[in-house]
Every structure is written in structure tokens, then in C-alpha cells.
Amino acid sequence: MTHPVPADPTVATPADLDVLAEQLGREPRGVAGIAARCVCGRPLVARTVPRLPDGTPFPTTYYLTHPGAVAAASTLEANGVMKTMTERLGEDEELAAAYAAAHESYLADREELGHVDEIDGISAGGMPTRVKCLHVLMAHALARPGVNPLGEEALALAAPTWRRDRCTC
């Protein structure tokens, strides 16, 4: 099934907001755009403003919404992948440096949407020193391919059940 994609695929259309509500099981909040789409055109990742309409600071700029990707991230978390990745950050200086760079990239992307003092310097997913949420890291990797090494790794680990190049909508 194909989904209508606007000329600028980062724009969240009313149809996209309907899909996000379906995916999340609730009305989406603070959507600034669509950061990544399924090959069929439906949203995979919502880009979210750093302060929600109710005033709540919200550090999660890239929010994974696709049910298949969310389930794959949850399975990886349940299998202990976060612990192993965090341990590797303490052992592999190159990986730690690339992950720190991903953190800085995330902060810069969020700052484009506005500055919120309460979350200044705080990215998401545990960056830059630990792995706390694979959903965030996978969303970042989908939104900014090649920037987040552990997000890319999580996407590769998810491939037996969910892949970005195959529609499962």
C-alpha cells in the first residue's frame, strides 16, 4: 500500500498525522515533520519539537513510530543489546568518539527546532556515554543515515525481523 508523500518528504501532512496517530495509538504531539519514511511513504520517524505544546521539555527529537521498527527495537533491548553496546563504549575509543559525535549532531538538529534551557546539552538514548534506548538510536540512524554508529548497528541487528528497505506496513 502506498501513502501519499508531499513534494517535500519532511513535511508532515494531515494524512501523515493520521498515520502517526494510528501507529502510536494516540494523537501525536509536537510534530515538526517526518524525519524518515517507509519505502511505501508512511512515516517511520517523526521529528518532534523540543518543547511540547503543553510546555513540557521533550529531548527526543527523532521519535520512532513504525510498529515493526518499534517491536524490533524492543526485542533487541529485551535481549540485552544495550548493556553490551554500553560496555563496548568503555573499551573502544573510536566507537566512543563516533557516538559522542552522534550526540553533538543530535543536539544540533534539535537546536534547529528551538532552544530549551531545561534540556540544553542533553540529547537522548543515553548519548554520549551509555546506551539507554535503542528506539531513539534507531530513529536517529533512520533520520540521519551514517551519523549514529550504534543506531546503525541496531538497525542491522533488527534486520531479520524489520528492515528499512522493506515495507511491513
Rank of each mutant, 00 (worst) to 15 (best):
P53D: 04
G125S: 15
G146R: 07
V131F: 02
A102T: 08
G25R: 03
D8T: 05
L157D: 15
S123F: 06
R130V: 14
T2C: 14
D117N: 04
L113H: 10
A143M: 08
G33V: 10
D54A: 15
S74G: 10
A124N: 06
V147D: 03
R163T: 12
E93N: 07
P128N: 04
A96S: 10
T61Y: 01
V116D: 05
V81N: 03
T84V: 15
R51P: 00
A139N: 12
A96K: 07
R130N: 13
E91G: 13
G55Y: 01
M82F: 08
E112K: 07
G121F: 13
C167Y: 06
A101Q: 15
L137R: 12
D92R: 02
T86L: 05
A15P: 03
R144V: 11
T48A: 12
P9L: 02
S123T: 15
A15E: 02
S74Y: 14
L52D: 04
G125Y: 04
R110K: 02
S123E: 12
E152F: 11
E104A: 10
G114T: 14
P59K: 00
L150T: 09
E27P: 07
M82P: 05
D117P: 02
A96R: 14
A159R: 10
G90K: 07
R42I: 14
P50L: 02
V136K: 00
L113V: 13
A156F: 12
L95T: 08
D165A: 11
V39G: 00
H115A: 09
